[in-house]
Lab assay of single mutants.
Amino acid sequence: KHCVKCNKAITSGGITYQDQPWHADCFVCVTCSKKLAGQRFTAVEDQYYCVDCYKN
Rank of each mutant, 00 (worst) to 15 (best):
K1I: 02
C3H: 01
C3T: 01
V4W: 03
K5F: 10
K5I: 05
K5Y: 15
C6T: 03
C6I: 02
C6R: 02
N7R: 13
N7S: 14
N7C: 14
N7E: 06
A9G: 11
A9I: 15
A9K: 12
T11Q: 07
T11Y: 09
T11M: 14
S12E: 06
S12V: 11
S12H: 09
G13L: 05
G13R: 06
G14T: 12
G14M: 13
G14L: 11
G14P: 06
I15R: 07
T16D: 07
Y17R: 10
Y17W: 06
Y17S: 12
Q18C: 13
D19T: 10
Q20W: 05
Q20S: 11
Q20F: 05
Q20T: 12
P21K: 06
P21M: 05
W22N: 03
H23C: 11
H23L: 00
A24R: 15
A24N: 12
A24D: 03
D25Q: 08
D25C: 06
D25T: 09
D25M: 04
C26M: 01
C26L: 00
F27M: 10
V28R: 13
V28K: 13
V28S: 07
C29E: 01
C29S: 00
V30D: 02
T31L: 09
T31C: 09
T31V: 07
C32Y: 01
C32D: 01
C32L: 00
C32G: 00
S33M: 05
S33I: 02
S33K: 05
S33H: 03
S33G: 10
K34L: 09
K34D: 09
K34A: 11
K34E: 07
K34T: 03
K34Q: 05
K35Y: 14
L36V: 07
L36H: 04
A37G: 12
A37K: 13
A37S: 07
A37N: 13
A37L: 12
G38R: 09
Q39S: 11
Q39I: 08
R40T: 13
R40D: 08
R40K: 14
R40H: 13
F41C: 10
F41Y: 14
A43N: 14
V44C: 09
V44S: 11
V44L: 11
V44P: 10
E45V: 03
E45I: 06
D46G: 14
D46M: 02
Q47K: 10
Q47V: 11
Q47H: 15
Y48G: 09
Y48W: 09
Y48P: 09
Y48N: 15
Y49S: 10
Y49F: 15
Y49L: 05
C50Y: 00
C50V: 00
V51P: 10
D52W: 06
D52R: 07
D52S: 07
C53F: 03
C53P: 00
Y54K: 12
Y54E: 12
Y54C: 09
N56P: 10
N56G: 04
N56Y: 03
